[in-house]
C-alpha cells in the first residue's frame, strides 16, 4: 500500500480516497462527515476559511479510523501510528486541496 490520499473537490463537498479506495466524504454546508458506508460520523461542524485545513485533516484521521478497522482488518500493525503516518504524509497534499477550495470560492 502506498497510502496516498486523493481528494475530489465538488462545489458542495469533497470525496476522500486512499489508494483509489473510497474513504468517505465531507459535506461543507451541513458540516457532515460520513464514512465509506455512508454512516454519518460527525455533523453540524462549522466549516469556515480559518478552520478548513484543520477540519480536512481531522476528517481524514477520523475516516481512516473506520476504514482501517473495518476494511483492512489490521491485526498486529500499530493502527494509531499508521493513521498518523498517513495523515502526516498527505499533509502537503491537504494544503494544496485547501488552497484549491479557497481559490474556487467554495468556502
Amino acid at each position: 500500500m502506498k497510502n496516498n490520499t486523493k481528494i475530489d473537490v465538488f462545489n458542495t463537498h469533497i470525496h476522500y480516497y486512499i489508494d483509489e479506495m473510497y474513504l468517505g466524504m465531507l459535506v461543507f454546508g451541513k458540516g457532515e462527515l460520513s464514512d465509506f458506508r455512508a454512516i454519518v460520523r460527525k455533523n453540524r461542524m462549522d466549516i469556515g476559511k480559518e478552520n478548513l485545513f484543520k477540519i480536512m485533516k481531522v476528517s481524514l484521521f477520523e475516516l481512516l479510523n473506520h476504514f482501517l478497522v473495518e476494511r483492512m482488518l489490521i491485526n498486529k500493525e500499530d493502527m494509531q501510528n499508521l493513521k498518523t503516518d498517513i495523515v502526516k504524509k498527505n499533509e502537503k497534499y491537504l494544503k494544496d486541496v485547501e488552497k484549491e477550495i479557497l481559490d474556487k470560492g467554495i468556502i
Binding site: F10, T12, H13, H15, Y22, M25, V27, S34, F36, R37, A38, I39
Partner: peptide
C-alpha cells in the same frame, strides 16, 4: 452500506 441513500455519495 447506506451509500444508495446519501446524496453526494459516489
Amino acid at each position: 452500506d447506506l451509500g444508495f441513500y446519501r446524496e453526494f455519495h459516489p
